[in-house]
Design a binder for these strands. Structure first.
Length: 762
DNA sequence: CTCCTATAGCTTTTT
DNA sequence: GCTATAGGAG
């Protein structure tokens, strides 16, 4: 039993064994953070602490599941099962369901996802007759979300001059009013959004000291993973719960704080010592994941940030390869370069596809990478973007479940009252919504009110509405009689959804049917698993689990041994032998949204740090000189972040960083950020080796500005990469003149003459 | 009321 | 390039 401590280094061992009192574990990238957390919990359990007295909070369901698995392996599944381990949202939604009555919510409250929230905001904006161009649902929601995470109620919002000024400044002075109505709507519908799960937990603990005490008592030990990414709401929950026993252990890395956009406060980790003056500090600085080159390069990046806890991350592994910088002519070519390189590396090193990851800043970049891989017949899996649970047919069926569980769930009702079509159209719904708005009731309350006949519907409409409500009520009758799976099947059948897809013989229709069947199978699996564990498994429980799932969490067997494509955000906590960071261009990464402020830029830099530190053996960074944005061609420069890496760790491929090698002395700082701090321990030396592919870049072939005017339709030209081709047409004015060229070997390309190095042959 | 087509507007990052 | 919406015909 004691052997679980073996193989830990002294710092790790300290962090595992010092279980009493407040602890701050600063864990550098790849330093075995998860290992310390699991061992610490396993250690507590072996010492005889009851599992239900341990609360372990993670950021993803996946992290929780993995940790639970590892702990199970040490102490046995029967014990690990009773740990309170999960995401903040999952754990506290469970507690809220138990205590919901105290807050005036039904215990069958349902959860709005981001889309539901946006839809609700949209209809509020419409009701208030505000300009929907100005009050964009996404923007309003992020204001509301920000307020909730700071525990600001609508009333407090009105008195908050900073927020009100900001809204006035962005010409949206009525956000506070939308917020107030939004809160009312949610309450009358008996729903909570993601932020409510945390906010209401705070309210619960504030207004019901007895409840707080109960949980304070229960949780002898509290552990928080990724503490640098907690927001104020989460921070306060932890603080309150830990007040009694003070056995709180937070683990994190300020250098990897990348979620401030959703309210995360890096200060939480920076000021832990102020909250718990008698805290113990453990620093995990040895990186076991990556080679020296990768760790050193990453350090040279992160050291440019100002606000951080000092630490020296080091590696004792071999030197390893340098970080490679690839320059691509276009976004499509970038994809091809990466796909080719993965193919070659995989052949040469006998590596598996699952050893490779392609990381990008925005989900929109995935498609091009996907196409490049598909062309080479390489297996891949994409995380993010369209997840299973975001497909329309799945959301629709889930909306039925929600409505059956909680008929006041207005967004669920609106979603499916006419799906499949049953002749209840917009006009009818507008009337009902107006009536509901005026009376402060939910849509369902109007529909089931005998006074429905007085609103002025014809008898046909009334009949249709009655049929609908009776159907839902019928399902509701089964709720306490049948297990989740059986009800789900009955709903899929009775709602007409199954039939709807069965009669749709198109390929899409068939795949939708398959998805519906897969969801039903999922419910079966869920029920079986839960009943084995002796836990609840009715439809409410399934809905709760599903509402808090992300597609990160749906790891299927058929997804084994595939190249992984994901955003850098979702890659946090993961590792791969070979990592390709693509689209590393100014205006994409760092994102233009973040480029204005030092704070924003530092967060982007941390994100870049996270990207680089995912790799065990090789990091490849690439950028494209031109790419399509919103379907328009646009031009980009390599990201400033590339220039920020200490050049001694780089290997420049091809013509990457043009104008940087030869003309270096003229503008040595062109890649350095304005905000780079002078105390940087790594003095960037610019004498990197330029590794040319042998093809000399001719200086007489440069097309720029007016020279483009000489190019005419029908001319034969030579391109340094694509070879010989024929000009099909020339459009636009310098400096944005474009030519379409049909190359003998590379096919048809659109070239921007400002960039393309073309030589006229005839 | 339903379905189809045209077009506006859009992208950070996610529990 | 893609999706969500508006507007028009049936």
């Amino acid at each position: 039993m004691q052997d679980y401590l073996e193989g830990l280094n002294p710092a790790q061992k300290e962090a595992v064994l010092n279980t009493e009192g407040p602890s701050l574990v600063i864990a550098g990238a790849g330093s075995g953070k998860t290992r310390v957390l699991t061992m610490r919990i396993a250690h507590l359990l072996t010492k005889g602490v009851a599992p239900y007295r341990i609360l372990a909070l993670t950021f993803t369901n996946k992290a929780a599941r993995e940790m639970k698995g590892r702990i199970s392996a040490i102490v046995g599944e029967g014990i690990a099962r009773h740990l309170w381990m999960g995401t903040f949202h999952a754990i506290f939604s469970k507690i809220l369901r138990i205590e919901s009555k105290k807050l005036g919510y039904p215990s069958s409250y349902t959860i709005y996802d981001t889309q539901d929230s946006k839809n609700l905001i949209k209809s509020i904006v419409k009701n208030m007759k505000l300009d929907s161009k100005l009050y964009k649902p996404g923007e309003v929601l992020s204001r509301i979300s920000g307020a909730k995470n700071d525990l600001i109620t609508p009333q407090a919002y009105r008195n908050d001059t900073k927020r009100m000024d900001a809204d006035r400044f962005s010409r949206k002075p009525l956000v506070h009013e939308i917020y107030a109505r939004y809160v009312n709507e949610c309450r009358k519908s008996g729903v909570m959004d993601f932020d409510d799960l945390l906010l209401n937990t705070n309210i619960l603990f504030r207004d019901h000291p007895d409840v707080l005490e109960k949980y304070q008592d229960q949780f002898d030990y509290i552990l928080v993973d990724e503490y640098q990414d907690t927001n104020l709401s989460q921070y306060l929950i932890v603080k309150k719960l830990a007040e009694r026993h003070k056995n709180v252990c937070v683990v994190g890395d300020d250098a990897q704080s990348i979620y401030s956009f959703r309210g995360a406060k890096i200060e939480n980790i920076l000021s832990f010592r102020n909250d718990y003056p008698d805290y113990k500090l453990f620093k995990l600085e040895q990186n076991y994941r990556s080679t020296k080159n990768i760790v050193n390069a990453a350090n040279s990046i992160i050291h440019r940030n100002s606000n951080q806890i000092h630490k020296t991350v080091f590696s004792e592994k071999e030197e390893g390869n340098r970080i490679r910088i690839f320059s691509a002519y276009s976004d499509v070519e970038e994809g091809i370069i990466v796909a080719n390189d993965i193919f070659e590396t995989q052949m040469r090193s006998q590596a598996a596809y699952e050893d490779f990851a392609i990381l990008y800043r925005t989900n929109a970049q995935s498609r091009i990478m996907e196409e490049a891989l598909r062309k080479k017949n390489m297996p891949y899996k994409i995380y993010g973007g369209f997840s299973f649970y975001q497909r329309k047919e799945i959301k629709d069926l889930l909306a039925y479940f929600r409505l059956v569980v909680n008929p006041n769930d207005d967004e669920a009702l609106k979603r499916i009252i006419n799906y499949p079509a049953r002749g209840i159209g917009k006009t009818t719904m507008d009337k009902i919504e107006l009536f509901a708005g005026n009376t402060g009731r939910s849509l369902w309350a109007i529909l089931t009110n005998p006074a429905l006949n007085n609103i002025g519907f014809n008898s046909g409409t009334i009949k249709k509405l009655k049929a609908f409500t009776e159907m839902i009520l019928g399902f509701g009758q089964l709720l306490n009689k049948l297990p989740a799976y059986d009800i789900a099947v009955k709903i899929a059948e009775g709602s007409g959804m199954r039939k709807f897809f069965q009669t749709d013989t198109s390929i899409e229709g068939q795949s939708k049917l398959e998805n519906v069947e897969e969801l039903l199978n999922g419910i079966k699996e869920f029920s079986d698993e839960r009943s084995e564990e002796g836990k609840e498994y009715n439809l409410v429980d399934f809905l709760e689990e599903v509402s808090l799932l992300t597609d990160q969490d749906t790891d299927k067997d058929e997804d084994k041994n595939k190249v992984t494509l994901m955003t850098i955000h979702s890659a946090k906590g993961l590792e791969f032998k070979y990592v390709y960071v693509v689209g590393v261009e100014d205006g994409l990464f760092p994102s233009p949204m973040a480029m204005e402020s030092q704070k924003g830029l530092e967060e982007e830099r941390r994100l870049f740090y996270v990207a680089v530190t995912r790799a065990k053996e090789q990091v490849s960074i690439s950028y494209a000189k031109q790419r399509y944005k919103y379907g328009e061609l646009s031009f980009s420069k390599p990201s400033r972040f590339i220039g920020e890496i200490d050049q001694q760790y780089l290997e420049i491929k091809g013509d990457a960083l043009p104008g940087f090698g030869q003309k270096r002395s003229a503008r040595p700082n062109s890649f350095r950020t304005r905000n780079s701090i002078s105390s940087s321990p790594s003095k960037p030396s610019f004498n990197y080796k330029k590794i040319s592919k042998g093809q000399a870049t001719s200086n007489s072939t440069d097309f720029s500005g007016t020279a483009a005017g000489r190019l005419k339709e029908g001319m034969l030209v030579l391109h340094e990469r694509f070879g010989r081709g024929k000009v099909l047409n020339v459009t636009g004015e310098a400096p944005n003149a474009k030519a379409t060229v049909l190359f003998d070997n590379a096919g048809q390309k659109q070239l921007l003459l400002k960039f393309a190095k073309l030589k006229i042959l005839n």
